[in-house]
């Protein structure tokens, strides 16, 4: 049975796509069959981290508009992992991208789409690709699609920065996720300044949200300089940021 993981944050700019791409790549490198689906249809971006200038076609948009199957929109990109890290036997990675073309984004905003078809796509992709993990990169904030992804997810990774707006928004999201009975909810704190006591922060997070924090990603100049230009945890596996990604992966797999 596929483990469905949603990566979400209440606000934008928390590092969802970067985290999604790196976690997915590491899961695939460990021999798992993994797909990433970019449901941030209004502002897609995870394809950039995998090294694509343009989104490979067909896209999720084509599937939602009935122009392709979900399997056709799933592009195998295991080579994007194997160029930097050995992939264990059986490991594969697919990307189901959302289109970056202005016309396609405009069409979605203008015409809408059937959210039920999106859910059918999750289910069919999991079955057709025989996935161990399906990672859903979501749009920030609470909306129809993100609530749907919460509902069907086995694991919800909630990203936030050490920022008051993020803290407040995360409290709202945790509340909604609990009402939707998400089985496993983990927080991931990103862009943590170097002068912050992580142990103290861990206690505060647990006390505030009653949820486990799976990773404490440091604010790292090297990651900023990487600028979504590749899979940082694969090219710099010994960096503290990459080691935290490894902890997140281990926590997911421990479920």
């Amino acid at each position: 049975m596929t483990t469905v993981i949603s990566i979400h944050s209440f606000r934008g700019g928390t590092g969802k796509s970067n985290t999604t791409a790196n976690v997915a790549a590491r899961l695939a490198a460990e021999g798992n069959r993994v797909a990433v689906i970019d449901t941030d249809i209004q502002s897609p971006g995870v394809h950039v981290i995998f090294g694509f200038e343009d989104t490979p076609e067909p896209t999720l948009n084509d599937y939602l508009w009935g122009r392709s199957s979900i399997a056709e929109a799933a592009h195998e990109i295991t080579d994007r992992v194997s160029m930097d890290m050995t992939v264990a036997d059986g490991g594969k990675l697919w990307l189901i991208p959302s289109s970056i073309k202005p016309g396609d984004i405009a069409r979605v905003l203008r015409e809408g789409y059937d959210v039920g078809t999106l859910n059918d796509g999750f289910r069919t992709a999991s079955k057709d690709l025989n996935l161990d993990y399906l990672l859903i990169d979501t749009h920030p904030g609470l909306n129809e699609e993100t609530l749907l992804s919460f509902t069907i997810s086995d694991v919800l990774l909630l990203l936030l920065r050490p920022d008051r707006q993020d803290f407040q928004g995360t409290a709202v999201t945790v509340d909604v996720a609990r009402r939707l009975d998400v089985p496993n909810l983990f927080l991931v704190l990103n862009k943590i300044p170097s002068n912050v006591d992580v142990d103290d922060l861990r206690e505060q997070m647990t006390a505030a949200y009653g949820a486990e924090t799976a990773g404490f990603l440091p604010l790292a100049e090297e990651v900023v300089e990487n600028a979504s230009g590749g899979l940082f945890s694969l090219t710099s596996p010994d960096h503290p940021w990459s080691k935290e990604i490894g902890k997140i992966v281990a926590r997911i797999q421990a479920n």
Binding site: L109, G112, G116
Partner: peptide, 12 residues
């Protein structure tokens, strides 16, 4: 399962 919903166009 049917009728999960439809995201409509944005306010124009």
């Amino acid at each position: 399962v049917g009728n999960v919903g439809r995201r409509t166009a944005r306010f124009k």
